[in-house]
Nucleic acid binder design. Structure first.
Lengths: 144, 144
DNA sequence: CCTGAAACCATGATAAC
DNA sequence: GTTATCATGGTTTCAGG
């Protein structure tokens, strides 16, 4: 699929407000309604738009504390550690990375007291390095 | 604002498909259309729903490579480093954290060759530690 | 391949209860 | 909260460039 400048503009606008009426979006990118609707449909079908979703304020949902944890499983514990991550809903993101560590995860908890219970099961199977998130000046920006 | 179980169910469904018709969402949570619509409106007004957005496939947009970089500014360079991060669109996320490092950022680039030019300007002002993302088994899950 | 207009229909908003 | 009704907006279709 070929993405042109108008597609990128559409994606930028949808990223800011995915419920913008097609007609308004159309006027902003300089196209007609049907043409814009067709582009959205194609971007969705091709998978460039993975899904329409909502961005939540986790603090207001009762998870005001986030941490970024680097996890280095001990020999033989790679798969079990990955399964433990996937099975714990308080882990929001998980990336497998090159370098010293194997996983970099983000987690959200209700309080500082909840941090230890979440990470405790890992201490047998991995070395962890926890950094408390003080603020997030940038969240899920798109590079367009 | 008080969030009950039905609100959490609504948020879960919207997280998977934010364009689900209110009537369908209503039947899934066991409420009427207007009651569900009113709950969505309140969740939005209270900021629990920060915004409706699209999740993009960055690889299909020409940014197939992601990295997680820990950045530790040298003395006196904190603000300039933060400004440099904010001004570079290829940085997707930025968290200020406790511990050894100061920033943990995620970036997306077109190729491995693009990595160095993006990070080069930081070498004067900070120590960086770069981990290439091999895969992301978990992306933006919500803890509900 | 686009635009613009009109018809149609799904959907969100509203009113009354 | 519900149900019934109204109005908005998305999709499709067409004629024309």
């Amino acid at each position: 699929m070929n993405i042109d400048e108008k597609d990128r503009l559409i994606l930028r606008h949808l990223g800011e407000d995915a419920r913008m009426p097609v007609r308004e979006l159309a006027s902003r990118v300089g196209l007609s309604g049907p043409a814009t609707g067709e582009r959205i449909r194609r971007l969705e079908a091709s998978g460039v738009i993975a899904r329409f979703t909502v961005e939540l304020d986790l603090a207001k949902l009762g998870f005001p504390l986030q941490a970024i944890v680097r996890i280095k499983p001990r020999p033989g514990n790679l798969h079990i550690v990955e399964d433990m991550i996937m099975g714990e809903p308080r882990f929001l993101d998980c990336d497998k990375v090159t370098g010293e560590d194997c996983f970099v995860v983000r987690l959200a908890v209700r309080s500082i007291a909840d941090l230890d219970p979440v990470l405790l099961p890992f201490h047998d199977r991995a070395e962890t390095n926890t950094a408390i998130v003080k603020s997030s000046p940038l969240k899920a920006r798109n590079p367009l």
